[in-house]
């Protein structure tokens, strides 16, 4: 046992080292934000700047600028219309304050889809 223990120790060290690398790799790779996180993040969707969300207790805002986000399925039976609204709201209303999230690439298509999925459930 005495003879093999240095090898084992080295192997063990390598395993720890590899595990360490894997962990670093995982930590470096940012966890993809959820639709709700994108909607709340003031560097991303920042929906709460202008919309209240009575259906989500975590949505804290005092805003009264734009319509509250509720009954979204009733208001947008076609999901594509809601997507288009987030992509470029100035198409439907030239004077809107809402940033054109897709047209100006504020959010990626993937991010818009996540946000739309989230608010579609409100």
């Amino acid at each position: 046992m005495n003879q093999i223990s240095p090898t084992l120790r080295a192997a063990g060290a390598c395993v720890i080292l590899i595990a360490g690398f894997l962990q670093v790799a995982r930590a470096d790779e940012p966890k993809a934000p959820t639709g709700q996180e994108l909607a709340f993040d003031n560097r991303k969707g920042n929906c709460l700047a202008c919309h209240s969300m009575p259906g989500d207790a975590k949505a804290v805002t005092s805003t009264n600028i734009a319509p509250p986000l509720l009954d979204m399925k009733g208001r947008f039976p076609e999901r594509a219309k809601l997507y288009a609204q987030v992509w470029d709201a100035t198409k439907a209303n030239a004077d809107t304050l809402m940033p054109p999230f897709g047209k100006h690439r504020i959010l990626s298509d993937d991010e818009i889809n996540k946000v739309v999925d989230y608010i579609y459930g409100l």
Partner: peptide, 8 residues
């Protein structure tokens, strides 16, 4: 939007 509230 004068007098409206932007988030807070």
């Amino acid at each position: 939007n004068v007098g409206n509230v932007l988030r807070t």
